[in-house]
């Protein structure tokens, strides 16, 4: 990627928004995310009757004075989120009809999300992949980490086939519990296998967000004249009359998208289909706004 994915206009529009993970996350640093662990943090959570083994320093002496019973204080700890950004750099991501390619769009999205997360002191890691992992930048929360991420994003190039499930499989063990996993790809892969792998992450209480980036031409297939279509990942090609194929192609594509979306829904995976012609700020605002509202509803319940 040659351009700067860190679009200042986009960043300025989303700077005041907070990305909140739906689930509680483990964290060391204080942040806006609720920690599942009780500890010596600032905010008091509840009292618990002392039992042997509890630390004596947590005994609430005031309560002992009032009630003559030993209670230990339990605190609600705020922690920061560990986020893994999976960015597809396979050949198909290099497709662009007008404007920017899917990859450029995806990289910008990744950069924007990184900035957002780092700004709220979350840990952000980046994994770029095609049919294998190409770069792995472990999660860090320092703001200087953003430069590292941006440098990597700038240098990335699209090539090779994609094999998302294999890449995910590599990270099942590496990624701990309660992390946020964001995958940005066109998902021209075996959907069932991807879903299967993602289930493993979910089992470990990780939250998964899929950004499905597609070019408008892939969604509408507006070709008119006889065209020699070539694959972007291998040697496959086809001479086709788009007019005669359009209807059937769109049917196939919609069927694929519908099936993918349904699978995600069934497995409580957050799925976002984004047309690469959609302005990035609109797409991000829409995404964040919806997450915000869905998160609030979760908290209420």
């Amino acid at each position: 990627m040659t351009g700067n994915p860190f679009d200042p206009v986009t960043l300025s529009k989303i700077a005041n928004m907070e990305l909140r993970a739906r689930l509680l996350v483990d964290g060391v640093l204080s942040g806006i995310h609720k920690s599942p662990y009780t500890g010596s943090c600032i905010e008091f959570l509840e009292h618990k009757e002392y039992s042997p083994g509890n630390e004596i320093k947590h005994i609430d002496w005031k309560v002992l004075a009032k009630t003559d019973k030993y209670y230990v204080k339990q605190f609600e700890e705020e922690t920061n989120l560990r986020c893994y950004l999976f960015l597809d750099t396979s050949g198909s991501m290099g497709y662009k009809s007008t404007g920017i390619s899917k990859f450029e769009y995806a990289a910008t999205l990744a950069a924007s999300l990184s900035y957002l997360l780092l700004k709220q002191s979350d840990l952000v890691g980046l994994i770029s992949f095609s049919d294998r992992v190409l770069h792995y930048i472990p999660p860090r929360s320092r703001i200087a980490h953003l430069h590292t991420l941006l440098n990597v994003l700038t240098e990335l190039k699209t090539a090779g086939k994609s094999n998302i499930s294999a890449v995910l499989n590599d990270f099942i063990e590496k990624i701990g519990r309660r992390s946020l996993i964001i995958i940005i790809s066109d998902f021209f892969d075996h959907v069932k296998e991807i879903i299967h792998q993602l289930k493993h992450f979910q089992f470990k209480k990780n939250e998964v967000i899929l950004f499905h980036i597609l070019d408008p031409y892939e969604l509408t297939f507006p070709f008119e004249t006889v065209t020699f279509f070539e694959s972007m990942e291998d040697e496959r090609h086809i001479l086709a009359d788009p007019k005669s194929m359009k209807e059937q192609y769109l049917s196939e594509m919609n069927s694929f998208l519908e099936q993918f979306k349904q699978s995600c829904l069934e497995n409580q995976i957050d799925y976002w289909l984004i047309d690469s012609s959609t302005p990035m700020d609109q797409a991000l605002i829409k995404f964040l706004a919806r997450r915000e509202s869905s998160l609030q509803s979760v908290h209420k319940t």
Binding site: S92, E230, L239, F256
Partner: peptide, 22 residues
Amino acid sequence: KRKAVSHKFAAIDFLLETNKRI
């Protein structure tokens, strides 16, 4: 046939699948 525009296309799988059918 000769004049057919060459176009690199990402969703080639779908085209191939469509082509198989029609």
